[in-house]
Design a binder for these strands. Structure first.
Lengths: 231, 231
DNA sequence: GGTCGGCATCAAGAAAGCATCAAGGCGGAG
DNA sequence: CTCCGCCTTGATGCTTTCTTGATGCCGACC
């Protein structure tokens, strides 16, 4: 029988490597999601909520390190970096950016699989210590299931809406500046497009607030940013 | 941070290696527990409940793999294996026995430290970071949340009002000259617009003082500047 | 007693920031 | 290929905030 062993997001631009990973992983009953660029990686991650990320450092657009940081902005998904660069400083940088493991190419399939198993094992029985669910009044966010409910009815959020909400939820009570939100949600280099924020905050409010014109959950801090008011 | 970064159990029989680890780790403010044999390792682990285990595979009595399995019998403490054996099968065996990471000797200190940080980061969601808060009588300023409360009711401040208050609060008790405040809040080149200060001090008082006409918190130092009276 | 400088307060115009609607573009799913 | 959902972008009107000017108070000094 073929019980899916987990969903893995593979971020890799080289075709040969991608084929190799696809073959090795699907042979072990992992479900694969693939991305070629950094931007695509972020998008796929929010859409599919993978159980683990295999990340090549040498990407065409963004640096893999940046992808790691962006992911860590809202997610605790295990990240294993695969890289041809074997220098110690590269490893330290990646690990400190939030990666869980660092494997230098070339590597053996079996070692990779063992490290994947080790990483998945850790998050598996969800020790209940860090509750994957938070609540703010009627609003309830289930991180593990990527599920947002409002008084027990599900709210459908687009990837960007969700990321924005997660950002705010993880810093509940604190004000997040426009810049912080833009960099976390849209990635570095978008820090001046405050218009995006306005549009999406309005959309979140329309979906989450009882009276979107007089928000109680998602409040504006004029001249500074936004905040999600903690219970 | 200079506070103990965590308790690490080092299981290693070679004296030189143990000395090396001791030096490297304590330099980074880790608290060390040491064990030479497998049996000792298990005992120390139960006694001291370490935050992480560094485990050499080549031990005099038990095999390190066995130690890993035994530990995993009751504990989820992160285990990083250090070993001279670099064969893939060794790594797979150790990881599948329950180790979280596998580092082949010789390795760089910085990589080891980065991997330790990565492992500790995972198990430490307890961000017990209480934000810096200062109080002056009924007035309370939460810097991290950018939240000002007066007898537990929130006070809304505009960006300039807030910056002005922060300036005064950071030098509580001291007099700040007009020039200092203007340059801090409005930026260099505004040092002669004392009128701004008057307007905004009045506004702050209206929002924070019980009797704005007879201020007790935000006092005027005629001819010099203003001061926030420390509790 | 009158005048003057520093200070407090009020109010109105100017500027900046914000919310919202809606249309076009893009890519993925069927 | 077509449809649909999502992201981007522009236009518009509104609100808040900042700046600026006018006015009155108070104590110091002449």
């Amino acid at each position: 029988m073929t019980i899916p062993a987990g969903r893995i997001l593979v971020v890799e631009d080289e075709v040969a490597m991608r084929r190799f990973l696809r073959a090795s992983l699907s042979a072990h009953h992992f479900e694969l999601i693939e991305a070629v660029t950094g931007g695509e990686a972020i998008q796929r991650a929010t859409e599919h909520n993978p159980d683990l990320v295999l990340l090549d450092l040498g990407l065409p657009d963004t640096d893999g390190i940046e992808v790691t940081r962006t992911l860590r902005g809202w997610s605790r998904v295990p990240i294993i970096v695969l890289s041809a660069r074997g220098r110690e400083t590269d490893k330290v940088e990646a690990l400190d950016a939030g990666a869980d493991d660092y494997l230098t190419k070339p590597f053996g399939v079996n070692e990779l699989l063992a490290r994947i198993r080790a990483a998945l094992r850790r998050t598996d029985p969800g020790q209940g210590v860090d509750s994957p669910v938070v609540e703010f009044g009627r609003l309830r966010i289930d991180f593990a299931r990527r599920l947002v409910t409002l008084s027990a009815t599900e709210v459908r959020l687009t990837p960007i809406e969700y990321r924005l909400l997660i950002c705010l939820a993880q810093n509940a009570g604190k004000v997040l500046t426009h810049r912080q939100l833009l960099e976390q949600v849209w990635g570095p280099g978008h820090s001046d497009q405050t218009h995006y924020l306005r549009v999406y905050m309005a959309q979140l409010r329309r979906k989450l607030e009882a009276d979107p014109a007089r928000p109680t959950l998602l409040t504006t801090e004029p001249g500074v940013g936004y905040r999600l008011r903690g219970g």
